[in-house]
Amino acid sequence: MKRILYVGLLLLISSIARAQMPSDAIYMPRKSVCIAGIYSRSSWNQYWEGTLKRENLNIGTHTTQSVMLMPAIGITDRFNVILSLPYVWTETSAGNLMGQKGMQDLSGWLKYKLFDHKGFSVNGLAGASIPVSNYVPDFLPMSIGLQARTVTGRLLLNYTHPGTGLYVTTHGSYNWRSNIRIDRDGYQAHDRLYNTDEVSVPNAIDAGIRLGVLRKTWQTEVWAERFACTSGDNIRRNDMPFPTNKMEATSVGWYGKFQPRNIGVNARIGYVTSGLNVGQSTSYSVGLLYQLNF
């Protein structure tokens, strides 16, 4: 279930990127900064325990909320830096598991337009994240994150019709995730016992496609995304999730932005249509955007 949270956050991060995010081909102009403040909420009452879809009365509905600050900085017209730092909290509607809260992981992206011709662009992105607080990583599904440091390489293609603003964007990425340390001396994973506190968090790939319209002051799109670990094990029957689990999720949703002047708003909704070792979450987020020019 924790993984659910993580996926939720991943989706969240991607969505936020709409106001020039790691998942779009929009760039802040040189010497300008757009700061987004975003509130997100994601909840589920069913999850996949391995391939088995189930509910859990000892959890009821699991909810993850976060507020996040996300500046996008225009270094040049085709090179942006994007940072984000979320504060996350979790709770359940039933059972006795303590909700968790705290600053999660600071992430940063370098985004560079490699090629641009007649509305078609090829964009390369490199991202990394590090945990900024000592939250508990293996108290799933309540933990706010997995404590893994991550590095991501992403290729993003976009075609925008110059006249109408109709666009299609697609991306694919590889996420390398570091090993983590838990509070325990040993644990069970991959059908064996590890006598160490070090845990391998599986690497992951993610991909997305978006169709929409981008105009000067507004934007609307529908999207579909896929997140999948490249290895990992399933949640054991009736057991809690663990950071080694192979999480997969396919989600669909909508994103919109309206920014007539320096100040704007954005919103996003998402829904997980299928998955493995994740919760079937419904999520939404709303954000306030503020652009500064220097």
Partner: peptide, 27 residues
């Protein structure tokens, strides 16, 4: 601009290489 693309390509390749290797647990 050329230097950025150099940087990004190199970084991307580097990430890809390390990325393809799954982390191993040292017991």
């Amino acid at each position: 601009m050329k230097k950025y693309s150099w940087f990004l390509l190199t970084a991307g390749l580097l990430f890809w290489t390390v990325g393809c290797k799954e982390p191993v647990i040292d017991e």
